[in-house]
Design a protein around this nucleic acid. Structure first.
Lengths: 250, 250
DNA sequence: CTCGTTTATGCATGTTCTTGCATGTTTCTG
DNA sequence: CAGAAACATGCAAGAACATGCATAAACGAG
């Protein structure tokens, strides 16, 4: 049996049952556990499954409400947030798009700096503490409830008039070869405009985003100026680029 | 059974029943109490539950920044909200501006009606439960943190393109002789546009708003179509006008 | 056909994760 | 206050895992 056939078969079993066990697959296909694990690793990298101890599950389709996603990995996000917030300088204008990590970053922004914050995520606007040094601009448009963001032509039109010093990009996949990608077409459109209108591109990524791929391309990896990751992330593949790499504290 | 599956199952049981007992879970999944306790500890860390002696409960809904004003007179506002929400008809487009009473109204809107909700209050957009029948449009612009609303020329320009069946006007003073007035100039500008672009004008007012006056005039009292008040409000002065008067239940 | 390269695979090694149990502590209840 | 139940912590066994290396098959160029 060819390797590709086996991968297809695993995809098939996954979509049928929602889960697969590494042991079962090894016995079923007559290969070693190691080979199955390699397969699952590859499938996970392509986003076809989510690896768990003992096998793999179908990728979680937007786990529950926005509130749940926000509280998910709250400690990790808080650490990423404070590391990211440290990159901001007095007087800057920031684009911040949607995502629970970006929400945490917005909350962590230094309160003693004069900042202009432009966002298409209403939750970020409401989360900013009442601070006279912070000017907040909301990009309106059609509000996508599952994303927690305003998307669509009106949002893009409004963003077209605003240039920023830094764009804090959220919720996307990063692969050194294929670049920065997003899961949703409408979301990708807005993010592309924000990238084009910003001097610096900053991404704060939880480890599950690194080395993954999504359908809609946003930018090359080389376009990234600051990459903030968890303390134990593997950054070797990124050192070849001209990117300022930052680790969150443990 | 995979560990991840067990965690998912516990999440499921939690959302169904609102609580879980550690003993029951251990028996149900055929693992030790210790393992269940570890699971609950993990779920609590992720914010999916709140640990209590003997098991776990669903987490208390998080308290935002506007929580103080929102919780003020929460019972009164909830009653006003359900009375106001009853005025809405299927297929309508609604302008809803900022204010804690209006936030309560937005939450109380019937979930089985197709509605288009246009608001300059980001908190209202985020508060709407994920409902495919509701289309939500956010009016962007400069976000006034103390008001919790987008105000200014950009907001007005965007509102200029949208006509609604009803405007639910919030946070203003009402006097039978001097009309409907607002406390803030920028706020008043936006409200005036929304009034001009809406067929019906609805106001839900707590009793402390009746018979008071603020600097910036929005409209004559006769312009009001629906006035929703507390159960014990004195409405005599309003009967001379062609206004549909509604009392919230006690 | 032959040689070098690439790819897939299995195995050995060491690491990490999960789990149950033992121990001691905290919390509830009568 | 006393007993029981629930809990936290440390430990150990086993399963699952990652990694490096060796082997064998597949492949392409000369």
């Amino acid at each position: 049996m060819l390797t590709e056939e086996r991968l297809d078969a695993i995809r098939q079993l996954l979509s049928e049952h929602g889960k697969v066990l590494a042991n079962d697959l090894a016995a079923q296909f007559g290969v070693s556990d190691d080979t199955i694990r390699r397969d699952l690793r590859e499938l996970a990298r392509l986003g076809h499954c989510r690896r768990v101890y003992g096998g793999a599950l179908l990728p979680a389709p937007d786990t529950g409400t926005l509130a749940v996603r926000t509280s998910d990995q709250a400690d990790v996000k808080a650490r990423l947030a404070s590391a990211t917030a440290a990159l901001v300088r007095d007087g800057q204008t920031l684009y911040i798009d949607a995502g629970s990590t970006n929400l945490a970053i917005a909350k962590a922004l230094p309160k003693d700096l004069r900042l202009t914050i432009v966002t298409n995520a209403p939750a970020i606007a409401t989360a900013m503490s009442d601070n006279p040094k912070h000017t907040i601009v909301v990009l309106g448009g059609h509000y996508d409830q599952s994303k927690g963001a305003c998307l669509g032509p009106q949002t893009i039109r409004e963003a077209g008039n605003i240039f920023a010093d830094m764009f804090i990009l959220g919720a996307c996949a990063i692969d050194t070869a294929l670049g920065v990608t997003a899961l949703d077409a409408a979301e990708a459109e807005v993010k592309r405009v924000m990238i084009a209108q910003s001097s610096l591109l900053t991404i704060a990524a939880t480890s599950d985003k690194l080395g993954t791929i999504a359908p809609f391309k946003l930018a090359e990896v080389a376009r990234i100026d600051h990459l903030v990751v968890e303390h134990d992330a593997d950054l070797d593949a990124y050192r070849a680029f001209d990117i300022a790499l930052h680790r969150a504290e443990n």
